[in-house]
Amino acid sequence: MQTLTNRAKPVDRRPMTFMEKMYIPAIAKGMGITLKHLFQRKATVSFPEKKRQFSPVFRGLHVLNRDEEGRERCTACGLCAVACPAEAITMEAAERKPGEEHLYREEKYAARYEINMLRCIFCGFCEEACPKDAVYMSETFAPAMYERKGFIYGKQDLLIPNPKTSSGK
């Protein structure tokens, strides 16, 4: 039979030699290996002090984007909610009133926009589905919390800061 790789080795069923039966050489060899590991570089990253860089395609917590004038881009079309395989996104649409043009870019906007981070599987389909470039996935992840309530992120948690009002800081 042809093997998948050339690395397969037949099982050695010969009876053990005297040296092998003594175990001591094998144990000494093993202890040499562990002693070597004692002085090797450790794989641990001391997390809160040192942070590892995420990969450029990392999909973390969502953010709701604004345009250059600080208006919300989301138009509450619901495509992200449809695309979401975990059904983590819910939203309620509302009509933009006259005088609110500086707040919302389109005539329709999301009055309520919630993502349940416990349901979310961070697949990034919402990001792909969004026609308005409103939903993006950032490079942070959800912190630990004591209650489930805290994992339902509303608009105030998701929206990025307004570049018009908070850029000076």
Binding site: T34, H37, L38, F39, Q40, R41, K42, A43, T44
Partner: peptide, 10 residues
């Protein structure tokens, strides 16, 4: 500590 060092931990 010894266990950790042998297993490449801190």
């Amino acid at each position: 500590k010894v266990a950790a060092w042998i297993q490449d931990r801190l």
